[in-house]
Design a protein around this nucleic acid. Sequence first.
DNA 1: ACTTCTTTTTTCGAGCGTTGAAAAAATGCT
DNA 2: AGCATTTTTTCAACGCTCGAAAAAAGAAGT
Lengths: 412, 412
Amino acid sequence: MTRTVSDSDSVRRQNRGLVLGALRLHGSQSRTALAALTGLSHASITAISQDLVAQGLVQDLPAERPDGRSRGRPATLVGFTRRAAHAALIEMDVNRLRLSLVDYGGVLVDRLESEMPVGVFATLPPDRFFAQRIQTLLERSPEAAPTLRRVAISVQGILDSAGRGLKWSPVADLAGKPFVEDLAQLAGATVTLHKRGRLLAEGARWLDPDLFDKSVATVFVGSTVAMGVSFRGQALGREDSGGTEFGHMNHAPEGALCRCGMRGCIEAYAADYAVLRTAYSVRETTPPAATVPPEQYRALIQRAQLGDRSAIHAFNTAGCALGYGLSRMLAIYDPSHILIVGPGSHALELMRPEIDRALAASLVCQVNGLPQVIAHRDEKEPIFRGLLMKTLADIDQNDFAGLPSAARAEAS
Amino acid sequence: MTRTVSDSDSVRRQNRGLVLGALRLHGSQSRTALAALTGLSHASITAISQDLVAQGLVQDLPAERPDGRSRGRPATLVGFTRRAAHAALIEMDVNRLRLSLVDYGGVLVDRLESEMPVGVFATLPPDRFFAQRIQTLLERSPEAAPTLRRVAISVQGILDSAGRGLKWSPVADLAGKPFVEDLAQLAGATVTLHKRGRLLAEGARWLDPDLFDKSVATVFVGSTVAMGVSFRGQALGREDSGGTEFGHMNHAPEGALCRCGMRGCIEAYAADYAVLRTAYSVRETTPPAATVPPEQYRALIQRAQLGDRSAIHAFNTAGCALGYGLSRMLAIYDPSHILIVGPGSHALELMRPEIDRALAASLVCQVNGLPQVIAHRDEKEPIFRGLLMKTLADIDQNDFAGLPSAARAEAS
DNA sequence: ACTTCTTTTTTCGAGCGTTGAAAAAATGCT
DNA sequence: AGCATTTTTTCAACGCTCGAAAAAAGAAGT
């Protein structure tokens, strides 16, 4: 059992975490509302919020809204103290890079966007590369530097078991160079790596309140194929190795050549390069293009929508691979909702017949019925949102909820 | 968040659960040993064990072993009070049925074994059927009746979302008849359903101390193909829908006909009937035999071991299906160990080349290396053991750890 | 037979966080 | 100004854990 002893310390941690979590999820709240949301007594909420205020994590907000009923003592809202902490969020793509500096209130302070310089990691160690960018960001907002608590990085590929680096990555020269510890040293903050697929799942929860505590599989379809799954609101999978390799699940033995070098991966049928390859009748075993211009992919979707046979065929093939992949996933884990995000979500209706056909051929769907497959158009937002909320929640629970009571420090 | 408020009550529950769990895992222990195992202080162990003794759950055992060092005050072991509770464990197979009455100490009190009467559920509701058998058992051990707390049933098939019955089952006329509540009424105890695959995973943990807190996938190969997965010692998957449908994961679209009626399931290539079908060149689409005599399957294994081409071919085909199934599972969840249990485990070496070949074709294995695939010959034992330990742990945690403190009751 | 040593177990007071009930605070309504 | 209403704080009590010290139970030494 991984379970540990419970004592007054863990009780405090748990309940303070509860309060911070409620604030995170529902925004600034009155103490009465917090009592209702968390299930704690008013007395406890008072004690806890005094504690949190004394530690500078939350503050009373100037009462604002008369909100309907106006009798009685007006509620004072408590909300996060923005300057209590900061985090640097890094979204790394094969060809783009985005750094965001956010505060403890979840507000974007500054942002740095750029192309991903080709081949940087051949000469510059990843830790130095990231540290430089973070440095730039902090120089522009010097007030954030002392309270920087996290550097959270969205990556693609396979993490090593300790979560210190990548064992495989589509970004050149990044795999096999554990950089987390060195970067933590340079940045003076905890560094966390997150698989993109997993963040999609996390982001989907926060963006759609209906999904918050549901079991959801979020599938990204675009330049790659990735999936994150959540189980009743908990992101599933080893926290370290993180997430799934859905895109590289085998679809057909000895099948189409994938960017990863293997054959028959779902990605090799359903990613943008794969659909184009099929549409233009290029041989399956032809090495995939490094990148596909977004407009070329969009154009193909349009052609298919207008009835072009070879384009339609390409999306059917993609749908078939996705459908069987999903049906195989369902045999192991069946979520109540399946979200398709990314550029490929615009082609969902083109792929749906084949997806449904493949799903219908499985026992699980025969018995439980077809799961709902829904398209969420935007994918940038879920990734950022997932990274943001996961990182802030991490600070809440691991750094702040465990802080010793302020009553002590005051007394001494 | 599913998390709830923590107070002194949950602290007591947690720590009493910890003590009971340590006793469950390590057997009777001295108080000092319990303190070491749980991490609780000696003072707390004294308080908790007094409480548990007062409630009749554990008792001091007559000191026995001088066990090496003999100086100092001899330890008195505390161990479960066997009569504190009883559970009826039912292992239901397509053609056999086994009921076991066990006590709180995990000791087998009585057992009833029989053929599974063909087609009973067409006329007799499942709850009545099971209640009758349990009745028989209790009449033979009347002392168990008042303390019967659980009826735990090992089933195959797909559970409904509430865990009240089966949505699909290989046992005729059992699906679609939720019987859990009625049986609970009749038996006067909580009734729990457990997927066989999941119990295998649970049982494997208890039988092999090395695996206790590892991530393991346990695959049953025999008259069906099933899998249970555990994640760092926690059985994975929704507690309700429970476990995986690995056997009915699609292997090849439009492939061999499976017993479930679908086509291309792994089971349709790797279960006993499937291997025989392949070996004797029967068409893939021929409806599977209802049952295969064990000796026939064993004979085929032997023929293959002696070099018979068509038998070898059949196991290669089975290995290929299993291998790709495992590789697809690994894309979603990769455990550190893979256990093969059941009759098919005797054929593991025949299937291994194909399994390894299929695994090697996946990115995850390319990066992480091939997982260890190990055979555990016996499968009856893991299922019973899994059912036993899971049920007793359930009683420990849900019934007894939550009991109010005995100090109260005594005072009044 | 008695003391000393060692190890296990219990006792005791203190600390901490929660709770329900009652009090206090803050404002609108009459 | 006084009353009603709603939010927030205060207070004493409770239950659990913990560390330290004491008690218990033999074994070994003299």
